[in-house]
Amino acid sequence: MKHAAIPEVAERVRVTILQGEAKASDDPNVEFSTVLGSCVATCMFDPVARIGGMNHFLLAEPPSYADRTTFDDHYGLFLMELLVNEMFSLGAVKARMKARLYGGANLREGMAAIGSVNAAFARKFLRDEGIEMVHEDMEGRNARRVHFLPASGQVRCRTTVNTAAPTQQPLAPRKAGSGDVTLF
């Protein structure tokens, strides 16, 4: 005898967050995911509004002739602000936001510790902005795969083979139109 089909739960909508992106959602069917090498991803959550957001950034490296201990944090700051603003637009409140940080691995020995620099930037940003960091899984030598349910704040992070992490460009691609001036 043929049984009636069990009603399916709504399809999970999987959204990949690429380097240079920040997205937010309050949809319980949405899952954000990303793969991180030396990049850092922030999973931000407002538990009252049940709104979550994720970004994925890599600080720009200094030009080859410059001191390799200083990095341009302007781009990381932009992506943090973009994340907070995406959450604002859905009704989240900054004072309630809690953050989890992932990534920032130093994949190859002997290379500049770019991952640690990204990780340090992210921690400092949260501290300066007064946003509580409830968890971090950063640095080390392994790439990570992160899944985040923005409407519930649940995160799953696993290490993965380093070749799964996208090849990182030394300079983060800047959003078209950034810095543009319009005088009215």
Binding site: H74, F78, G179, V181
Partner: peptide, 9 residues
Amino acid sequence: TGWIVKPFD
């Protein structure tokens, strides 16, 4: 008077 897009230059 005007609008400037972040990240600013």
